[in-house]
Design a protein around this nucleic acid. Structure first.
Lengths: 255, 255
DNA sequence: GAGTGGTCTAGACCACACG
DNA sequence: GTGTGGTCTAGACCACTCT
């Protein structure tokens, strides 16, 4: 073997590119600043646009960049810390603030995985409440809350079968029930078309799916499937407050 | 405008492809079964290989597929439920079982974000313990545990400054300290080269990064940064056991 | 060596935002 | 209209695994 390996383990171009760009972001750019467009960046680094895009995609996945069609690529602010396990999970509803905002309510059969967690027959319709979570002015999560009729027996039938008014009623009744606890699971997913629209992202965007099972009186009172924007959110759990774990310095240093 | 829009809102090909493939996976394939190779699939659907790959990437992200270079694409089993908030976070160490496995220990300065959470000077070296989490025979997570010297004052200096023996010592001392509680945060990231190797994935693979701050005596006793394979793991929190929230049927039905 | 997925190229056209 | 990112193509070559 006469050839000494000059580059012992040649890493992919896009990976190296990502590293270079990441360092440039740290040193030469402020939050909110817009980068040169993809065609120019590709030319500048001497790679095909597709390769450059592969690097940008990684950085966006890591929450370093934000890309918007027709606009450009900007340096993203540090991820928002979003509390997920605050004692009562915020049953309060409000147009502003840190709470969930009930949007709509329909009645339909839940999808199979949800039915498996609820104590209902597979063909029994349940209330499906749609909620949005807005934190610091940004839509960070879209939720579908599945509530069997049996969990909200007092629900008045006067209000129509759908709409935000009924949505709030269902949530209120569920809260009134008193909950014993909850199980949670977090996994990676991609935004469905409807969620993507609420979150102002393209379909397929990476999201953190938080599945919560609310327990009451020894059974499952409701199931929530909430999808959080994975690019902009950091889900926080535990006793301490929202901003306890946060990156140092540079809190919005864009001029 | 004479042209009636036949396809009102034409969705991207890769998105439609993903849907078609997803349904095919549900109906025509068993867990573990291998799919036709990418070139054939692309030809079969009449798209370029890159487009087909975009669909496969999405499905892999969602945990439906598993791809291995040189081998092929297989149907993935349902995601593994991995408990993250069991009372003591498993300080037990074992080669087998559901626990963390201490691999190594070095002493170095922690990266800036970690330093910000620890109560140490920015240039003060800390113990860095490397651990692997193996669940049901699979490596699901790689962790770096940062422990300031002040948190483990009883640590004997006899053992060398690195190696698995010292790693276990640090963990044992930390456990002996008694912990008051912990803060956690979950976010999306991409695997660094070293983590990727431990997790048997390529660098850049999507991971769930769990940052935990261990509290003791009013301060931060240690910080853990654990990266879980996002494709195969579902992180579970809460009182109930590991497998409480799980998809119905088909637990390993591959013949 | 044969076959697989992973990387990369150099184009083209499309959908969207903004002035 | 102009400029941006998003989608798509038809190739090529590389790294890896298995036999």
């Amino acid at each position: 073997m006469g050839t000494t390996q000059l580059e012992s383990v040649q890493e992919p171009k896009y990976w190296h590119l990502k590293t270079v760009l990441s360092e440039a972001l740290d040193s030469d750019f402020a939050v909110g600043e817009i980068l040169p467009n993809e065609r120019e960046l590709a030319a500048r680094f001497g790679v095909a646009r597709a390769t450059l895009r592969q690097a940008l995609e990684q950085l966006e996945l890591e929450g370093r960049l934000q890309r918007r069609r027709g606009v450009g690529t900007t340096v993203a602010p540090p991820r928002l810390g979003v509390a997920v396990s605050t004692a009562q999970h915020d049953w309060t509803d409000g147009v502003a603030g840190e709470a969930w905002q009930a949007v709509d309510c329909t009645t339909a059969v839940a999808p199979a995985p949800v039915v498996a967690m609820l104590d209902v027959e597979s063909d029994e319709p349940v209330h499906i409440v749609r909620r949005i979570r807005v934190t610091q002015g940004q839509s960070v999560a879209a939720e579908l809350l599945y509530v069997p009729s049996s969990s909200v027996p007092e629900l008045s039938a006067i209000e129509g079968p759908s709409g935000p008014t009924r949505a709030r009623s269902v949530v209120r009744e569920l809260h009134r029930l008193g909950l014993d606890g909850q199980d949670r699971a977090v996994e990676l997913g991609s935004a469905r078309a409807d969620d993507a629209k609420e979150l102002d992202r393209l379909p397929g965007a990476p999201v953190l799916v938080v599945t919560t099972r609310y327990l009451a009186a020894g059974g499952t009172a409701a199931v929530s499937v909430a999808t959080y924007r994975a690019d902009t959110c950091r889900l926080t759990f535990g006793a301490s407050g929202d901003l306890e774990i946060s990156h140092p310095g540079q809190e919005r240093k864009a001029s």
